[in-house]
Design a protein around this nucleic acid. Sequence first.
DNA 1: CGGATTTGACCTGCGC
DNA 2: GCGCAGGTCAAATCCG
Length: 309
Amino acid sequence: MEEKAQVKTENSMANSTFSDQIPASFAFSSSIFDMPCEVEKGSLGFMDLLGIQDYSPSLFDVLQPPLAPHPLTSPASSAPPESSEVVNAPATPNSSSISSSSTEAANDDQTKAAEEEEQDQEKNKKQLKPKKKNQKRQREPRFAFITKSEVDHLDDGYRWRKYGQKAVKNSPFPRSYYRCTTAACGVKKRVERSSDDPTTVVTTYEGQHSHPCPVMPRGSLGIPPEAVTFSAAAASSFAMPQPQYQQQQQPYFNNSSLSLNFNHMNSSSINPAFLHERRLRPSPASLLRDHGLLEDLLPSQMFKEPKEE
DNA sequence: CGGATTTGACCTGCGC
DNA sequence: GCGCAGGTCAAATCCG
């Protein structure tokens, strides 16, 4: 069983179009899971990532840390010890990474959105009615990232309702399924704790919000408005082609006391690939530290290379 | 009492 | 075709 899963992982990676471009040294440097190499290279903005085609959804289903050696990594370094180092580090960008995925339909999000609506309606109707067999369920673009957190469900500003929980194979931790509570918003997210590194939480967003973020945590918990965290909400906002309101809102992340400031970053250069949720410490000191360690959240290349293609 | 969560059952897709 | 695993539903339950 386990071997099977590993084989599958390897195959997924091997078949992915971008895996070929991933430098071996980078393959698992994130310590979490593979991300499109473009992120690390800084050659593409995040939206560009969404345009990446041929991303096999299955690839992003496999968000587990490298249980199996990456085909591109040297056999000897099947389990880079640096990952644990990274995780234990006070603040490092590598302890968090992000990935985006898109189905083949991600190319035309416009038409897709319409299709999704129809599908949603169909979905509501169907329920106990079996779906037509030849009608393959079309998956929405997904966007996954990993945070280091003690809490599984991160408050990203949107309101979610849990609608399911499943045990995950080869993982002691269950996977939780959430749906945005806003009517007509079909965004879902899955949250699961990494079996490889229980301190990390894998959150996968699916779809895009069709509404503004309902919660304004400004001032909550005494967090200065400028000290906002680039969050899941932000991630999902950036992940998907969003309406204008997304640009008007500051991405924030209200998770207990954690706060990180991304405001001074050029949004066009923001890449949520390095979201990092650190241990929550309500102390202002940690806030300051987080703030000050913003650089740590992003690889130096991110700052040095805002270059566009 | 209303909304959120839990949880077992059911459906679907996929690999063998 | 069968079995497995992921994903979803919805009744029951919990909680503020």
